[in-house]
Amino acid sequence: MKVCIIYGNERKENTYNSVQIVKEYLLKKEDIEYIEYFLPKDMPNFCIGCFNCFYKGREQCPHSEYTMKIYNSMREADGLIFASPVYVMDVTSQMKTLLDHYGHMYMVHMPMEEMFTKSALIVSTTAGAGTKYSLGTIERSLKYWGVSKIFKCGLTVRSKKWNEIEGNRKAKCISSLENKASKFYESLLKKKSPSLFVKGMFQIFIMAHKSENSLPIEREYWEEKGWLNGTKPWK
């Protein structure tokens, strides 16, 4: 089993250590291959709004050296973990710019069909407040990518360092992480069916791409997949 992990920063404290709890829990269940990316090291560039991914294809992104590597890792993985600390009530700028680079994966454009059968876990930590917003930002992109099974774990740790978290609070954090890891793992084992939201939006976008307003490259993409003729990207 493969799990792709994307960290919203390179600081190995609360968010990083929270993910290590999840990794250790999953490894007790079975042998899992992890591929990890740390931002901004593994995606150092901001999206410049050139629209190449929409009009010419994802491979034409000026930052494809980074974006395609992560894209392929996500496609090949059985599960995804996105982890970001809270920076001023939301995700890190590094995490946001990563998500910006994959706007072309929204269902309305050129979705990665493998996303429809993946599970994802989002982890976010804060010393104060804001996990609701950071979790929501990541969840929104995953949802519109077509991921139906999304688990969220937001932790208020009241400390900037993992080793300084108060004992009872840390125990509760670990318990929450293991609980979400358990649900995430169980979902990885199951044959997944897209949510009603995904199925409904997909049907709407079929009609959109049959119209004259669809971008040629997107219409061609949907036609090649057979999606405009009744084929579904799930069984």
Rank of each mutant, 00 (worst) to 15 (best):
M1Q: 02
R219T: 11
K210S: 04
S93P: 04
T15K: 01
E186L: 13
K96D: 06
K180L: 13
T125A: 12
D78L: 06
I70T: 09
P40R: 06
Y55R: 13
K12D: 03
I165C: 02
G57H: 06
E59I: 14
L26K: 00
R11G: 06
D78A: 04
C4E: 06
V86R: 03
S214M: 10
Y34K: 03
R140T: 12
K161P: 00
A129K: 11
A129S: 10
F197K: 02
A129Q: 04
G226M: 10
A120R: 03
K225A: 12
K2S: 06
S211P: 01
L27P: 00
S195E: 07
K235F: 09
H101M: 10
E166Y: 05
N52K: 14
R158H: 13
L155V: 07
Y55A: 08
I70D: 08
M115S: 11
L155T: 08
I70R: 02
L142C: 02
L27M: 15
N17K: 13
M1K: 07
F202G: 01
I32G: 03
E13Q: 10
R11I: 14
K192I: 15
K28H: 07
W145H: 09
L98I: 05
L189M: 15
Y106E: 07
N52A: 15
M43A: 12
E10V: 13
V108S: 09
P111G: 09
L135T: 07
Q203A: 15
